[in-house]
Amino acid sequence: MKFFLPALLITVAMAAISLFVGVSEVSLLAIVSGQADEKMLMVLAASRLPRTLALILAGAGMAVAGTIMQMLSRNRFVEPSTAGTVESASLGMLAVLLLAPGLPVMLKMLVASAFALAGTGLFLAILRKVPLRSPVLVPLIGLMLGGVINACTTFFAYRYDLMQAMGAWTSGDFSTVLRGRYEVLWVACALTVAAYIAADRFTVAGMGEDFSTNLGLNYGRVVALGLVIVSMVTASVVVTAGILPFIGLIVPNLVSMIMGDRLRHTLPWIALTGAALVLVCDIVGRVVNAPYEIPVGSVLGIVGSIFFLNMLLRRRFRAA
């Protein structure tokens, strides 16, 4: 725990950098010395601050969601984008756009959550049908399920000329986050806190159904709670910024390698690392090709797939 404070400070510094990087100039000096003009303050309040907050909430939420999924499926390779959750949430978004485009964003999020819940439930149901659970078979099925759901989404998007709209929410882009358009992420924040309160239950559930029952835990109820948290966090992130792939894979595995899986102890670290990782990737995406932006989703796609490959290849060497 003694390293938590420095880590927190680093993340805060990252958030501060995130506030002051961008096309229109916002300088810390000017703000502190009271020389900031109105435009600068407006950019800060309406665009930069919401964006930075959104990055932190989304990163922390997705990392915690990934952890919960790994505990519930007892598999290190599972996270919302390798279990059909993200793709189902996108399908839900498309359904809203087609059938009830006027819904307020909170309701859109709830519909997307319902789809995500159904998709993840389907994934877990398929897993129960696989008696020999080869650990790498699990994410493989999840990825393919995601592909199938995605094909459905693309089909309807083509049919109704919504490809462009779909591209916007699948890219994982925070450049369009403004005040008034990210607030649904506070739901993700609340759920992340809820996950922390229930941390011990998720750890026990991660020990398996038999252990949970032996310790007097209602396993089914914990799974249900976990699924709701994961679906709603994923949906609120997809609704505001789009898909953030692999955070739920990278962060929980890194933290677990170093300090294990007692979630009461590790969840704050997971949330913090998730936020920091997304902040860094977003800053990189903004700086590399300025004035153009690279969506944080693209950066994460690369970082995440390299991390994933590394996990798989290390497994190969360990088996050999």
């Binding site: 239950r201 020990m207 398996g208 310790l215 294990g260 899986d261």
Partner: peptide, 28 residues
Amino acid sequence: ILRQDNHMTARLTVRDLVAFGRYPYNKG
């Protein structure tokens, strides 16, 4: 009860694991 073949994916220390034996009493 302790069954055989207790395969565990969660990474816990021995102390963490034993401490969960008290879970029914203290809920963590």
